[in-house]
Amino acid sequence: MKGSTHLFLFGSGPPFTTNLGEEFKGLVEGSKIAVLYIEREGSADYLPLYTDCLGISDSEIYYLPLRNEYSSEDLAALKESDAVIIGGGDTVLYRRFIVETSVGEVVRNLFEEGRPLAGFSAGALISPEKCVISPNDNVQEVQLFEKGLGLLLDAVVSAHYLEWEEEVNLKAAVQGTEVTKGYGIAENSGIYLKNGRLSDIEGYIHIEN
């Protein structure tokens, strides 16, 4: 059964901004939260930043390290989640390990069922139908236009908007994808979209039409 959709997008890594964190927490019906992340040095110390503000025990958090292939146990655990958080890091790798994989399919189904989803930086960038990766965010140092998760239609996202001086890149992303708008989200800032419509913002947000 499909419900209202709830998408929280942030312009940098964790933690949640204060008000949007409270809104996300209030939407989680249950307490099982999946955190999708790419393992790297210091991950164990960093991961709690995603969930500390939600007030749930570690036993209720399912940490799924992203990779090329997933087991049936991975997918079964993900399907039981009441909410999903997609972490930040290498956007090219996040897209490769999620968007066109079995995990991406599960995430889309959960989202369409009304489970809230939060994306931080890379997680935010891969969420729209069209994923645009900044020249500042890939080794080729060119703007990349790729397929996204499809959780947000007719819009693109730019993370680290102020810090990476993304004004020109966001304009090019909107024009290149022919979407109606682009959301430029600064660090320590975020947006909440309910049913694809902007419902709340926190911090610095630029909307490019």
Score class of each variant (00 low, 15 high):
180 T>R: 07
58 D>V: 10
80 E>R: 15
55 G>P: 12
171 K>F: 02
34 A>V: 03
171 K>E: 09
19 N>Q: 14
85 I>W: 07
90 D>Y: 10
127 S>L: 02
123 G>D: 04
201 I>Y: 11
197 R>W: 02
23 E>V: 08
13 G>V: 00
18 T>K: 15
120 F>S: 01
93 L>P: 12
201 I>T: 15
24 F>H: 06
174 V>A: 00
119 G>I: 04
69 E>Q: 12
135 P>M: 10
194 K>G: 00
179 V>D: 03
26 G>N: 14
63 Y>C: 05
122 A>G: 01
202 E>H: 05
172 A>S: 13
54 L>D: 03
37 Y>G: 13
169 N>V: 01
139 V>R: 12
55 G>W: 08
180 T>A: 07
43 S>A: 13
23 E>T: 09
164 W>S: 13
167 E>D: 14
195 N>A: 00
190 G>H: 07
124 A>T: 01
3 G>D: 04
108 R>P: 10
171 K>L: 04
64 L>S: 06
74 D>S: 12
1 M>A: 09
186 A>C: 11
186 A>L: 09
196 G>D: 09
6 H>V: 07
125 L>M: 15
61 I>W: 06
85 I>M: 13
105 E>Y: 03
94 Y>F: 14
120 F>P: 01
95 R>F: 00
47 L>N: 08
30 G>D: 00
12 S>Q: 11
196 G>H: 05
188 N>V: 00
69 E>F: 10
62 Y>H: 09
97 F>T: 05
41 E>G: 14
183 Y>F: 15
27 L>C: 02
28 V>R: 03
145 F>E: 05
153 L>C: 02
34 A>C: 05
203 G>E: 09
124 A>C: 02
9 L>C: 02
16 F>S: 02
97 F>N: 11
71 S>W: 12
68 N>H: 14
18 T>F: 12
165 E>V: 11
2 K>R: 03
22 E>Y: 15
76 A>K: 08
178 E>G: 01
41 E>K: 15
56 I>H: 14
60 E>Q: 11
25 K>R: 15
147 K>M: 03
111 F>P: 09
39 E>V: 14
104 G>I: 13
35 V>D: 12
131 C>M: 11
100 E>R: 12
126 I>N: 03
